[in-house]
Design a protein around this nucleic acid. Structure first.
Lengths: 114, 114
DNA sequence: CGTCTTCTTAGCGATTTTGCTAATGAGCTT
DNA sequence: AAGCTCATTAGCAAAATCGCTAAGAAGACG
């Protein structure tokens, strides 16, 4: 259910990386990690339940696929935070510009007065 | 050290959300959650050690700030995976186009002959 | 200097996570 | 139907996580 929790584990992120390249059989995934098959199977389950991956059955094999939507959701959360942060800095910049402008105007007024 | 692990916890993501808006005192953060102060303090430590937030001391208070860089790093990882995935679909699309084109060319040849 | 405020670290228990091996389910193949 | 392959679930131990309360560190302030 929770994408962030699913991506917290380095093995699971590596699986995501593998599936970004192309679809894979469960066994093909398991072979690439130094841990036992059932352990990988559990990681696949977590990724499945969080919606990060899906599979289609083909005879006795499961072919796993990366689901862009879940990953995109997480990306968008990151972006939203960064946007709010950026907006804050932009306002700060605008504020500094405003202060600078006022400063200059006051300097000119001083000149006018001599 | 690990941004993804830091963002796995919903309380910590809420803290990130608070700090995106503006800097906050540790106490100000703690007040917004139904858990005890020390528990929040530990969450802040995890976020600190993963580089997601930083603080500056001011008298007895700590003012916490969101660090864009760590969040950006996580965002970029997401983007990288999605880009690889997208590139794959683009290639697939190109492949399908190629097949379609060949099909049409063969159809024309049939007409010529037919 | 004693004490208040602010925040953290120490230490504990309950729960969850991650690894393992063993057993199970489902589909081929002979 | 027996046996093989592919992948999962079941069940266990070790480790990590998250909450709590109690105790500590460090500046402010009478």
């Amino acid at each position: 259910m929770d994408v962030f929790e699913a991506l917290a584990d380095p093995t699971r992120r590596a699986i995501v990386g593998m599936l970004a390249e192309r679809e894979r059989y469960a066994g093909e995934i398991a072979d690439r990690f130094p841990i036992a098959g059932p352990s990988v199977s559990r990681h696949l389950k977590v990724l499945r339940e969080s919606g990060v991956i899906s599979y289609r059955q083909e005879a006795t094999s499961r072919i796993y696929t990366l689901e862009a939507s879940a990953l995109d959701e997480a990306k968008q959360w990151m972006e939203a935070q960064l946007d709010v942060l950026k907006a804050r800095f932009d306002r700060l910049g605008a504020h500094l510009d405003l202060m600078k402008e006022r400063e200059e105007r006051e300097a000119r007024s001083d000149d006018d007065r001599g």
